[in-house]
Computed example of a mutant assay.
Amino acid sequence: MPTSSESVSKLYGIISQHENSRLAGHPMEREITLRAIRKGLAATSPKRIADVGGGPGKLAFALADEGHKVDLIDLSPNLIQLGQAEQDKRKAAGNKPLLESIAVGNAMDKSALQDESYDAVLLLGPLYHLMEESERAQAVTHALNLAKPQDGLIFVAFISIAAHLRDIAMRNPGKILEFEGFYAKYLTDGRYEKFDSRIGTAVQSFHTRPVDIRSFFARNFSDSLDFIELRSTEGILGGGLDTTLAKSSDELVQAWASLLFDKYSTNEEHLGCADHLLAVLRRR
């Protein structure tokens, strides 16, 4: 079944407050993602960044605070409202950088953003919910068109199949027997399509593996994108293990982020420890 944009938008409308605070509780996902973007940009001057599907803009504002010019779009009006509220708060205070623009937009549609003008394009959420490979390829193609020719970077995040298995092992391990047929298929194709009674709406989510991420880009973009790296955004602390650091000092958070980024986020044997996998690519 193709993706229902309406269902995805409804889902994030329901969980918008959770999504607004989620990265505060997962400091390694936040910090390793930011470090990967910094490494790719190697910025000595402000860069133009398009954050496509960036939710309430937590990473967009963090990058703006570092001096970059960031445009934010997201499918969910509720998340964009939260981003606009932060923008308005900053504008009133007058002491923090603002985003260049904030708007509702779909990663699968050609946006109002200017083609071939961005040093980096972030797709750090849309592919979590695009069920068909053709849809995922379409979203990456639109990001490719936004990136500067020859050196524009694209950062694409995926959810690991192992992440969901860890989650049910901790919350409700009996699910693999209760829904044996569902999980047999899920382990084959990574499609999670179920009604979630906890939040009262249908969920469409796509999960994958490192080898399949590389194959996806090789099949669809071998002539237009160079694959730079695949990185775990939690290092070895997937499954919520980084939440214990959420109330730690910034010094301690950064020490752990440095350790995990340098030692445990790109080695093949550690990628399975991640909840989220970040592919970094460069436009040819």
Rank of each mutant, 00 (worst) to 15 (best):
P77C: 04
D275S: 14
S249W: 12
Q81P: 00
F179P: 00
F61A: 12
G272W: 03
K89G: 11
R48Q: 14
E135C: 13
G174E: 13
L99Y: 07
P56Q: 07
S111Q: 07
E31Q: 07
G190F: 10
S111K: 05
S224H: 10
N20T: 07
R48F: 08
D151W: 00
L59M: 13
Q138G: 10
L187M: 13
L113V: 03
A93I: 09
L153F: 08
I15Q: 12
N220G: 13
S222W: 02
A143H: 06
S101Y: 03
Q81S: 14
G53V: 10
R284C: 08
L59Q: 14
V280H: 03
R30K: 14
L259T: 00
G181Y: 05
I176M: 11
L75P: 07
D151A: 12
A255I: 06
I168H: 07
R166P: 06
A50M: 06
K185G: 05
A24Y: 05
A42V: 00
L98P: 10
F158I: 13
D196V: 07
A36D: 05
R284F: 02
F206V: 04
D250Q: 14
H18F: 08
G174C: 05
M108Y: 01
R191W: 05
T33L: 05
A137F: 13
D189I: 06
T188Y: 04
F182Q: 12
Y12W: 11
S248I: 01
T188V: 11
Q150N: 14
L113E: 00
R231T: 15
V140A: 11
A107D: 09
D88C: 02
A36F: 09
I49L: 06
G239L: 11
I37T: 05
A112L: 01
L277I: 13
E251H: 11
Q204D: 08
A24N: 10
P149W: 09
L153V: 03
E86W: 01
A143T: 04
E251I: 06
A163I: 05
Y128T: 14
T44A: 13
H270R: 09
I228Y: 04
T33P: 02
S134N: 08
S21T: 11
L98M: 12
G240D: 11
R284H: 12
M131D: 01
A107T: 03
K91C: 05
E269K: 15
P149I: 12
F261H: 13
T44E: 15
L123W: 01
I80R: 00
A169R: 12
A147S: 11
A274Y: 08
N145R: 15
A147C: 03
L281P: 01
S215E: 15
E19G: 01
I213Q: 15
T141V: 03
V121K: 03
Q138S: 11
A137W: 11
V104Y: 00
K194F: 09
Y118V: 00
P46D: 03
P126I: 04
F217D: 08
G235M: 06
K175G: 01
F261N: 09
R48M: 07
D262C: 00
L230V: 06
D51Q: 10
D151R: 02
F221R: 08
H207P: 00
R219P: 01
E86I: 09
D74L: 08
A107K: 01
Q150P: 00
D242E: 15
E229D: 14
N267V: 07
V156M: 05
I236E: 09
H18W: 03
S224M: 04
L260C: 06
L241I: 02
K10D: 14
F206L: 15
R171W: 02
A85P: 00
K110P: 00
E178F: 03
